[in-house]
Design a protein around this nucleic acid. Structure first.
Length: 193
DNA sequence: GCTCCGATTATCT
DNA sequence: GATAATCGGAGCG
């Protein structure tokens, strides 16, 4: 009997996917330990969006943004940080959702080993580059299929609209007014309100 | 608590 | 040559 693929929404609009990814889980194996994280903050980027890396078309850097949904787009920025996106949309379309913050549910000690300077638990994963550091995600993971270990995406039921806050994106210089950032209301692991 | 600023390099002009 | 989907430390009060 036919079962709806829970990943179907990833092949659609990135703004809706960003909303829908809130509450979903990342299950990783880091240094041989299982780590479970809940996605609590996201931002949508797509091709007709001047803030998006895909805005100027397909290049070697942005190639995976134009590939199949559910893979990882990892980019390097500010000369020292990696950030992680979930690719969305149909193949040939350059869109993705930036994961800006996650809430650790399991594997805290492993994350602390990766980020020894973090004092509070909230400092482990409350920023796009912080969570990559905590998970050991680097350019090696660019293009990784999130169906596969050591980093997998587990879809959870959609949150209610009343649990979601929608606002403008952080750190960009173009299309700054677009309300394409989402986070879980009252969650203390977000990067900022 | 806050604001300011330096780090460091792939990518684009 | 300038910029960047960031972070963390310094200085302030």
């Amino acid at each position: 009997m036919a079962v709806v693929d829970p990943w179907t929404f990833l092949r659609g609009d990135s703004v809706e996917a960003a909303r829908r990814l809130l509450g979903c889980l990342l299950v990783a194996e880091v240094d041989g330990q299982k780590v479970t994280l809940k996605i609590v903050e996201t931002e949508a980027y797509h091709q007709s969006d001047a803030a998006s890396h895909s805005y100027k078309g397909r290049t070697p850097r942005t190639d995976v943004m134009f590939g199949p949904a559910g893979h990882l787009y990892v980019y390097f920025t500010y000369g020292m940080h990696y950030c992680l996106n979930v690719v969305t949309g149909a193949e040939g379309e350059g869109s993705a959702v930036l994961i800006r913050a996650v809430e650790p549910l399991d594997g805290l000690s492993t994350l602390r080993d990766r980020r020894p300077k973090a004092s509070a638990d909230t400092d482990l994963t409350n920023g796009p580059a912080k969570l990559c550091q905590a998970l050991g995600v680097t350019k090696e993971f660019n293009g990784h299929d999130l169906h596969l270990p050591p980093l997998q995406l587990q879809i959870e039921p959609a949150l209610l609209d009343s649990q979601i806050v929608q606002t403008t994106r952080i750190g960009i210089t173009r299309d700054v007014h677009r309300p394409w950032r989402f986070y879980i209301a009252k969650n203390r692991f977000i990067s900022r309100p």
